[in-house]
Design a protein around this nucleic acid. Structure first.
Lengths: 224, 224
DNA sequence: CCCTTCCGATACGGCTCGTATCGTATAAGG
DNA sequence: CCTTATACGATACGAGCCGTATCGGAAGGG
């Protein structure tokens, strides 16, 4: 039976693609206007010129609706080759921060993450639409830097390489998100440069598989 | 007039301190049970054995109630002198992560931050109760490392020192928060060690006031 | 042309919010 | 002791939103 997945719906009236984009646009616009907490399904429906029923036919609740609307914004994240590791990092930091400072992303990203804490389905959507997509950029930038000779190549142990990519991802995305949304201070060129300096020199050390120069902590066995 | 602030209320029945702690405990317990989004004022009141009126007499809404309940958890964050910069960082990363992984902090921190995006009053409370408190730890750890000779001393420019402390704060807190709440992966000893290695070597470079070794990005003026 | 599915409109129960009210309880001051 | 001022518990209330159900009609596929 080769035709199970490729035909989810094959008969009947198809869903309106116009309604889809109208809903997405209305959701993002509503996020800008009233923010996450005051956003209601009824308001989005009215703004999109759609019945509330149509919303619930596509998304189970507010969380899923918003995560889809927001995830699309992450599509614009790219990593053009800027010629050096430093320029690549600085560029992605600035473009990521620019996206985060847009009002429709600002509140909703945190809200979606918070919501996903108690909702495994939502968490998976966040992972696919946001986390994995960003992580791929890190992987890509690292490969480029290795090709340029700016970072040491992988030493066979792919698990360790993955751990390092995960670490870099959390450091970059975490710092930018935290600066923007928690500290609530702007990511300007100066901050991006200082951060990039820190990261590049840290990377050089963390990437060397022969063990870092500094000895590990608690050498005396004081397992506090 | 020396007696303006010290006498906020001087006549009438004082507020019940027992009710205060009962409400805080009930709020944290409710956060564990049902999470932020499903937490209701009525439920907290019933759980605390208090009338709903009493809640609204102390906090204007759910956001303020929760931010006070959560902020108290940050009081336990300390920075004992572990003897070296590396041990200090690793220790604070692990203790911060441990706190974040507790269920009552997990969802609520993000939710409060998201809520504060559209609520300046709440934002100020978050800043006082959480951000500034953590930032002080960074300042403290940096001073110790300077006293030990592990980091170069301040070079007069206190503004630059403040910028650096802000950067370190966002990098540490951001990475731990992002790893825990967005990537949803545990902060174990191995991760903490790898992160600390990265940060220490990055710090050595970013702290040198004579300008970082690497030249700033986009020297050709390609302001993309 | 028929069948299936989607659409808009409307109504509904249930829940939560935040406020108001009222009688009672608990302090300080006279 | 008695007055005054505030906090408390209980209850009720309007308003808003959620998510579902129902309905007649519309729009494609076979």
């Amino acid at each position: 039976m080769p035709s199970t997945a490729p035909t989810p719906r094959r008969v009947g009236r198809p869903r309106s693609a116009e309604a889809d984009v109208a809903i997405m646009d209305a959701t993002r616009a509503a996020l800008v206007e009233v923010g996450w907490s005051k956003l209601t399904m009824g308001y989005v429906a009215a703004r999109a010129g759609v019945a509330k029923t149509t919303l619930y036919r596509r998304w189970a609740n507010k969380g899923e609706l918003v995560v889809h609307a927001v995830a699309a914004l992450f599509d614009e994240l790219e990593l053009p080759d800027r010629g050096s590791l430093r320029a690549d990092i600085e560029g992605v930091v600035l473009s990521f921060a620019t996206m985060l400072q847009r009002p429709e992303t600002n509140a909703s990203l945190m809200a979606v993450v918070a919501e996903s804490t108690h909702d495994p389905v939502l968490r998976e959507h966040v992972r696919e639409a946001i986390v994995d997509r960003q992580k791929h950029l890190v992987f890509q930038g690292r490969e480029r830097a290795q090709a340029r000779g700016e970072l040491p190549p992988d030493m066979g142990d792919s698990a360790e390489a993955r751990r390092l990519v995960d670490l870099i991802f959390d450091v970059i995305a975490g710092a930018v998100v935290h600066r923007t949304l928690v500290s609530a201070e702007p990511v300007d060129t100066e901050w991006a440069q200082q951060f990039t300096t820190l990261l590049i020199h840290g990377l050089a050390a963390a990437s060397s598989p022969g063990g870092p120069p500094g000895s590990p902590a608690s050498p005396g066995g004081s397992t506090d």
